[in-house]
Design a protein around this nucleic acid. Structure first.
Length: 374
DNA sequence: GGGCTCTTCGGTCGGGATAG
DNA sequence: CTATCCCGACCGAAGAGCCC
């Protein structure tokens, strides 16, 4: 066209109706029309200018893809995610079906605004969903949408921006005393489960770790324990044996002298020969199952009867950790014993100890004050 | 300007109820 | 007894912020 310079970015034409239509090349070099036409040339120019800026900033979103439904995209996301553990896949699918799909699943991606996300969360909580589960669902949706932003150019910005919505409200677990742990152990219907309780508490083990222990993991004199495996129960696959939860989970523990004799006796009386024999097997010789144990010892009723209502098996591990922290070890040492890579949990125990120290100090001060006033 | 701590984000395991 | 549903708690890696 004579006299007309080609535009640096995009193209523009006047339609028979008198309105202006613009088109442009996306980052994928495909030509697209703007979703609407403009009443005058200036408006069209402004649209192109804004568009160019977003594209330069790498924030351009493909309008066609924005029509994909949130639920479909999320479903695809889970399927395509590499290296998710089976447990996580199960959880994600469940969260999607239960807490996401029914609310925003049929919404096109482009229609999922921050306001819609906010409302979704409000609805979820109003429906009686706990903070914890709402936070989980929120985090999943956010992770999905982050991929939509970063990799697929479906969205410009993640609409999940509710402050604190990803936070799970931590709750205090009861702290068992040494005496209570022994009471619990004594209440076990059979001797070998008594040992299970004591080893779990004094070696601060996880359930999956303690039931995976084998004869070869215990030093002959019961002084050391080698944690090298852990089991998880996976839907449709049953018990799965693998490495412990974290890298630091593989560890060697010194067994407190107080339970060594018991452990050695347990090995003699109950554990099959051979280094691969399980320390605490089920009656069928295979790994003990959680629900099997709970039902067998009637856990819920038991702890209630002993005045420890609401105590979980995992609280044995907590108790052990608290005791260890009270002995006055460093955070690093505590982490090593717990099999943690992360210091957060260890710090919680040390804080609990500090509070106890404070209480002791306060009591001492009181005594001193009483003395002075005499 | 390198090592530390804190926060954010994504991911994994534990526990109880209940149906089979 | 096992399997599964539903929910709650816990954890690791990397990025952000901070302090020498």
């Amino acid at each position: 066209m004579a006299g007309k310079r080609r535009r640096r970015f995009g193209a523009m034409r006047k339609l028979p109706s008198g309105r202006y239509q613009v088109s442009y090349l996306g980052p994928d070099s495909k030509r697209r029309n703007a979703p609407e036409t403009f009443p005058n040339k200036t408006a069209a120019e402004q649209y192109l200018a804004r568009l160019e800026t977003t594209m330069m900033a790498g924030e351009w979103a493909d309008p066609a893809k924005a029509k994909i439904h949130v639920g479909d995209y999320a479903d695809q996301w889970i399927t395509q995610r590499p290296r998710l553990s089976p447990r996580t896949v199960d959880l994600y699918r469940w969260l999607l079906a239960k807490h996401i799909e029914p609310y925003v699943g049929r919404l096109p991606m482009g229609k999922l605004t921050p306001a819609a996300v906010r409302q979704w969360r409000v609805d979820l909580l109003a429906a009686g969903v706990s903070q914890t589960m709402a936070a989980k669902a929120y985090r999943l949706l956010r992770a999905v949408l982050n991929t939509a932003v970063d990799e697929d150019s479906i969205l410009v910005k993640n609409p999940c921006r509710v402050r604190g919505a990803d936070q799970e409200t931590p709750s205090e677990r009861p702290v068992l005393t040494v005496k209570q742990v022994f009471e619990l152990a004594d209440a076990m219907p059979v001797r070998r489960l008594r040992t299970l309780i004591l080893v779990t508490a004094f070696c601060t083990l996880r359930w999956g770790e303690v039931v995976a222990l084998r004869r070869g993991d215990v030093a002959p004199d019961g002084s050391r324990l080698h944690v090298r495996q852990a089991v998880t129960e996976v839907a449709r696959r049953g018990v799965v044996v693998g490495p412990p939860k974290s890298r630091a989970g593989v560890r060697t523990l010194i067994v407190p002298a107080a339970v060594r004799a018991e452990l050695v006796q347990h090995l003699e009386e109950w554990v099959d020969a051979g280094s691969e024999a399980l320390l605490f097997p089920a009656d069928n010789g295979k790994h003990m199952r959680r629900s099997n144990f709970s039902q067998r010892v009637k856990w819920t009723q038991l702890v209630t009867r002993l005045g420890m209502k609401g105590v979980h098996f995992h609280d044995l591990r907590h108790a052990g950790n608290i005791w260890v922290a009270r002995v006055g070890v460093s955070t690093k040492d505590l982490m090593a014993r717990m099999g943690h890579d992360d210091m957060r949990a260890a710090l919680i125990y040390q804080r609990a100890t500090q509070e106890a120290d404070q209480a002791i100090a306060d009591q001492l001060s009181k005594l001193a004050d009483e003395h002075r006033s005499d």
